[in-house]
Design a protein around this nucleic acid. Structure first.
Length: 849
RNA sequence: GCUCGGGUGGCGGAACAGGUAGACGCACAGGACUUAAAAUCCUGUGGGAGCAUAUCCCGUGUGGGUUCGAGUCCCACCCCGAGCACCA
């Protein structure tokens, strides 16, 4: 027996869907909406890999199901096409990124269509399309033209920034504004990758390092976005979304909020203060030395002449080390004494000031008060350099030996009583509180909330990205483009190699660095950096709601229809974006929210990460391991429906699971069996499908299948939904005569999973309208339950017998029946029944002695 | 080191809310059809004792506990995976 003609069927229906615009999505505001989104792909030259269809099939199933349930479903697709790989590929091959991107998108589109996804391609977005990046640039300018009002806790237009009366000079006022903008230029040490010819965000470094690229620290002029202003909102609004616990944790961790205090230490013989941040102000009396990061501004000033050479040597060594080396290689603490002393404000004792690279310049104030007794790092350092360790916190009823290890936990303060300050005897929580109040009263410190999150490095020295729409004049002033001047198009060039100066390739384009600004008539040059790949994906979900609008990035009414009340209903994509994309997009969304451009606090209500599809050997697929599966081959051999079904069947969507060649054959077998159950070898409706009533058994199988499939789609348990459909097919295959009603409803259940074969079968069953436009069948709760159940009889909690009986028998009835059983009788004989446990429709348990 | 997941047959995995562990699929074995093979169909399949489709014992990483009853709840430990990692 041959396999069902999947090639013919799949081609036929894909053509039909396209020609009849079956998946067109209308903005019908009268219908209830459902917005389901995939993380859009980066259209690489390699084409779709086997992992893509996993998440896409899952969302396709839900989208089709929701549509059958009467929702107006938005399930769009697009391409995140700016980025380094394309640009690098083009440099090597000598083709233009526009051309390469066009081709890649075409290949991806064909491959996605080959899998039978229900996309409305008229809504597709492409981040490299000028009509799209016009609005990416517009959003950058919105951020640029904003300042963050701490009181109102939101972004406001820069023109509403209160200018201090003391500033009168125009240049000074501009400078003041620039300092407050949410997008600003800074000269900072960045992660420079020579080979890529660009800088990378902190978040990106590891990825490229893993690929074998060297990344070094280098100070450069860069654009930054003040995402840190949103740290608290990004943190607390995580409460509003239904995301995987681990992803929320990762974002919390990344934002890294900690509560504590800034404390000022005076320096002996100097007029300067050193400000430190600590989360344990209660341990101030145990602060026996201070440590500055080697890069700290005051180091040069306060080091003594004798220490000069040691300090300089140490600083040089520290600068050469990357962040990675500073952390991973050096569990052994290093450092140098500056020669100077600070005064501990609580004990009034002089304490030495050191520099050490275990203190990070970019966190807190770049300086710490070291409390070796209660911090492991400080303890290691103190041991290394024989600095004093003073215990100021004790654990109740336990005499901790501070010489053996630090005690970093909460406890009760001790040795903390001095002339004007005393917290001895207080619990850590109270001690912290009292210390902060004292610091604030003495004006030598204040309560402080510190975040690990840093500003977002937003510029790249690349060609293939959105140009930053800012121009600079010869006098150093600058001008942001107006909306009517957007998009600022990328120049058409043939060379994408970076300039020798480390600047972007755009710095070599004459019309970019030397032109007369039409609006002002002044000589100007454009910013030569471009935006990072993350920019376009920060807002694409909004564009799908109104993808061709040239007046605004998204019509207000359409935004509210598709996004209300909680944003995108379901967002599916890889866990690798847990911090980067998902944090950046939330940040932009919040800026848009502050201006009323979007109506929800958060963009994505529910988030789901699909797991990796591994090679058949259980290892990650990679060319070098030779375990890569190509979706084109699989579709050719087994069909798109089999591939879709198999990827959903192998295991829970969120788990990593290995590919299996025999496994996909199993999925194919199920579809073959389904085909033969309904169709003849000639592709006609089988004569066994008849207009006859169902038996009670058949009704039970059908209704429990309708129920289980619906529930499992809603719960995203596709594997068990498919298992249930297999049960249906196995059972009905055996019935000689198949009631038409059952078969039709089954085809409707199958349709979201395997749309091609479902269309064909639906047509064979005599319907002219597409199966995708049908209603999902309803089930009768009463018919979805077995009328006969198996009652388990236990004696002393061990199973000793079973009998079939009607549903909902009483304990008495069950007891009587159980005792009729010879075997049960033998177990009860001569014993005294102490207790009987009865669980309706499940078990009866006799406890005997 | 810290945080979060997770350990169930030969394999991928089921098991609602503490109540028949192993659904469904793969693989394997036997049988039917066939000249033969493939495909298809039927049957079996956690381990052990046993002639047995009689019966019994053991079984969800390990050790304890709660309960009439634990894969599921509690405590301790082991292992695997992911993320963070001198963030003061």
């Amino acid at each position: 027996m041959a396999s069902y003609p999947f090639r013919k069927i799949e081609r036929k229906w894909q053509k039909f869907w396209k020609e009849n615009d079956i998946y067109k999505v209308e903005d019908d505001f009268s219908k209830k909406k459902y917005y389901i989104l995939d993380m859009f792909p980066y259209p690489s030259g390699a084409g779709l890999h086997i992992g893509h269809p996993e998440g896409y099939t899952a969302t396709d199933i839900i989208a089709r199901y929701k549509k059958m349930c009467g929702y107006n479903v938005l399930h769009p697709m697009g391409f995140d096409a700016f980025g380094l790989p394309t640009e690098r590929y083009c440099m090597v091959k000598g083709i233009h990124p526009i051309e390469a991107t066009r081709k890649n998108i075409e290949v991806f589109t064909n491959q996605l269509n080959m899998l039978g996804f229900a996309y409305d391609w008229s809504r597709a977005v492409n981040t490299t399309d000028p009509s799209y990046y016009k609005w990416t640039q517009w959003m950058f300018l919105l951020i640029y033209n904003s300042w963050f009002d701490e009181e109102q806790n939101r972004a406001r237009h820069i023109d509403e920034l209160p200018i201090p009366a003391s500033l009168t000079d125009r240049v000074e006022i501009e400078k003041y504004k620039d300092e407050h903008r949410l997008a600003y230029i800074a000269m900072i040490p960045v992660n420079w990758c020579e080979e890529l010819g660009t800088v990378l965000a902190n978040e990106e470094c590891d990825e490229w390092r893993e690929k074998g690229y060297a990344v070094e620290r280098k100070p450069m002029r860069q654009w930054m976005l003040k995402i840190t202003k949103y740290a608290q909102r990004l943190l607390e609004d995580l409460e509003l979304v239904e995301w995987p616990h681990s992803t929320k944790e990762m974002q919390k961790n990344w934002i890294g909020r900690s509560e504590g205090a800034d404390v000022q230490f005076t320096i002996q013989n100097f007029d300067e203060n050193i400000c430190v941040f600590t989360t344990r102000p209660d341990t101030i009396c145990g602060a026996t030395y201070l440590v500055l990061a080697p890069e700290h501004q005051l180091v040069e000033k306060i080091r003594t002449a004798e220490q000069k050479s040691f300090i300089e040597e140490y600083k040089k060594k520290a600068a050469l080390k990357s962040d990675l080396e500073r952390t991973e290689l050096s569990k052994e603490k290093t450092g140098v004494f500056t020669g100077s002393y600070a005064i501990n404000p609580a004990t009034k004792q002089p304490i030495p000031i050191w520099i050490a690279d275990y203190v990070l310049a970019h966190y807190g104030t770049g300086a710490i008060m070291a409390v070796p007794a209660h911090d492991e790092r400080d303890w290691d350092f103190a041991k290394q350099f024989s600095l004093p360790i003073v215990k100021v916190v004790e654990q109740e009823g336990n005499n901790w030996d501070i010489e053996k290890a630090a005690f970093p936990e909460d406890g009760i303060s001790v040795n903390s009583t001095f002339d004007e300050f005393s917290i001895s005897g207080l619990q850590t929580v109270e001690a912290k509180e009292k210390t902060i109040l004292w610091l604030e009263e003495k004006v030598i410190g204040q309560r402080k909330i510190q975040y690990k999150l840093r500003d977002w490095l937003f510029s790249r020295q690349r060609y293939w990205g959105e140009p930053i729409p800012i121009m600079f004049f010869e006098d150093g002033t600058k001008r942001a483009l107006e909306t009517d001047e957007l998009p600022l198009l990328l120049p058409d060039v043939n060379e994408f190699k970076p300039a020798e100066t480390g600047e972007s390739p755009l710095a070599k384009v004459p019309e970019w660095v030397n032109f007369i600004d039409k609006k002002t008539g002044r000589k100007a040059r454009f910013e030569t950096n471009t935006m990072p790949q993350w920019a376009g994906s920060c807002w694409y979900y909004l564009r799908y709601a109104d993808p061709r609008n040239n007046e605004v990035f998204c019509d207000k009414e359409k935004e509210s229809y598709w996004m209300q009340p909680d944003g995108v209903d379901l967002y599916v994509g890889g866990a690798e974006h847990a911090v980067l994309h998902l944090l950046y997009a939330r940040f932009w969304h919040k800026v848009l929210f502050d201006y009323g451009y979007v109506s929800t606090l958060e963009p994505f209500k529910k988030l789901f990460h699909q797991g990796l599809i591994l090679g058949a050997d259980g290892r990650k697929m990679s060319k070098s391991l030779g375990n890569v599966i190509n979706p084109d081959d699989v579709v050719e051999q087994h069909g798109a429906d089999s591939l879709r079904l198999f990827e959903m069947f192998i295991g829970p969507l969120q788990d990593a699971k290995p590919w299996s060649e025999t496994g996909i054959e199993g999925s194919n077998r199920f579809l073959n069996r389904t085909w033969r159950m309904i169709a003849t070898e000639e592709g006609k409706l089988s004569p066994d499908v008849l207009d006859i009533p169902m038996t009670a058994d058949q009704e039970f199988i059908l209704h429990s299948t309708i129920k289980k499939v619906a529930e499992d789609i809603e719960g995203m348990h596709f594997n068990t939904a498919i298992a249930q459909m297999m049960i249906f097919a196995n059972e009905f295959y055996k019935f000689e005569k198949k009631p038409r009603e059952a078969i039709e409803k089954f085809v409707l259940c199958l349709a979201p999973f395997a749309p091609h074969i479902a269309e064909e079968l639906w047509q064979l069953l005599g319907h002219s309208e597409s199966v995708t436009l049908q209603k999902y069948p309803e089930f009768d709760e009463k018919k979805a339950v077995k009328s006969q159940i198996e009652m388990v009889v236990q004696v002393n909690s061990k199973i000793r017998g079973k009998f079939a009986c009607e549903l909902d028998l009483t304990q008495e009835e069950v007891e009587t029946k159980a005792k009729e059983d010879k075997k049960i009788q033998s177990y009860l004989e001569g014993k005294q029944v102490k207790k009987v446990i009865f669980v309706k429709n499940k078990i009866i348990n006799f406890i005997v002695v």
